[in-house]
């Protein structure tokens, strides 16, 4: 039954798109890292949906966090003669030889979410990634705008020490508040990107800063830590969202629930839709020969309580976060 429906659908779409039928016939292989986080799962879900939208035959290979599995998957895709390969590289190095094989087979490779070393080489068509420095900057600029010149002491919940995302989001936020002398970071500790540690660290921040009276805003490198921090503030009798401003990064569904309840103020989205722009780049390249720039930066969209958080929550909650 399903198969027949599929046949029918492809026949109909074939008839409809007989002019620009390229995209409909396209087969693209995606070597996904694995299921390391909720965001990763959402990325896989969204990629499938985006492929369906464009009638692309999309094959996903789960590498279970192992580079050798990714290399095997790429070789298999080359052997199958796919039209393009998407790669979310688990590590930055060691890709030269396998990407050369793809290049010799004239199959364009697009990197998703992460770049490789050395970057900008002609071994891949383009890299679709988010700029984590920019994400931090968007968060910082929102805070500067929101406090509007009033003095504001910020406490920062950092990601895992040494993780490049944590370093970049810290730097970006510092850039964002650099022009405003009224906004300053008074405390900064790592919450390891987890809810439990975010809560524990926030508890100690509250105690160290006069029961929370000296804290004007919390900045967390991801939403999960902020969800923990919000709990800590509530248990201390503080009102997050009104007494203490919050801004974090990632835009996972649970932070929208907190925003809808008025307990969180803003989040900067790390979009799970990396595949959409990648599909468009590949289609344009295949059909018109348009060579995309080496780096396609995804949008770091800011969401606040004014953006109907409950509706965003509903749209995101089934993506697999």
């Amino acid at each position: 039954m399903n198969f027949r429906a599929l046949l029918l659908a492809s026949a109909v779409s074939g008839a409809l798109f007989s002019v620009g039928a390229q995209a409909a016939d396209m087969t693209i292989g995606f070597s996904q890292i694995g299921s390391e986080s909720g965001w990763r799962a959402a990325e896989t879900t969204v990629s499938k949906a985006e492929a369906k939208k464009r009638n692309i035959n999309f094959k996903i290979a789960d590498a279970q966090q192992k580079q050798e599995n990714q290399i095997k998957a790429i070789r298999a895709f080359v052997a199958q003669g796919v039209d393009a390969i998407f790669l979310a590289p688990v590590v930055a190095t060691g890709w030269d030889s396998v990407l050369k094989e793809a290049k010799e087979a004239k199959i364009p490779v697009v990197l998703l979410d992460r770049d490789i070393d050395p970057s900008g080489k002609d071994l891949y068509l383009t890299a679709v990634t988010s700029d984590s420095v920019h994400e931090g900057k968007v968060a910082g600029e929102w805070l500067v705008k929101t406090v509007a010149g009033k003095p504001c002491n910020v406490v920062e919940l950092q990601g895992t020490v040494g993780a490049s995302v944590a370093t970049n989001r810290k730097k970006g936020f510092e850039d964002g508040i650099a022009g405003a002398s009224n906004v300053k970071i008074v405390r900064s500790q790592t919450g390891d990107f987890t809810r439990a540690k975010g809560k524990e660290v926030m508890e100690s921040f509250i105690k160290a800063e006069g029961g929370g009276k000296n804290i004007c805003a919390v900045y967390a490198h991801n939403d999960d830590m902020m969800v923990g921090a919000i709990q800590a503030m509530k248990e201390a009798g503080l009102k997050p969202g009104t007494e203490i401003l919050t801004v974090s990064i990632d835009a996972v569904p649970d932070i929208f629930k907190a925003m809808a309840a008025g307990e969180a103020n803003a989040t900067v989205e790390l979009t799970p839709n990396m595949a959409g722009p990648a599909f468009d780049a590949v289609i344009a390249f295949k059909e018109k020969g348009t060579v995309p720039p080496k780096w396609i930066q995804t949008e770091s969209k800011l969401y606040t309580q004014a953006d109907n958080p409950m509706a965003v929550y509903e749209s995101k909650k089934d993506l697999g976060y």
Partner: peptide
């Protein structure tokens, strides 16, 4: 010790 480190305000690299 953990709580003390969090309260101290040392940079997290030293934890």
């Amino acid at each position: 010790m953990n709580t003390g480190i969090l309260l101290s305000g040392f940079p997290p690299e030293t934890n």
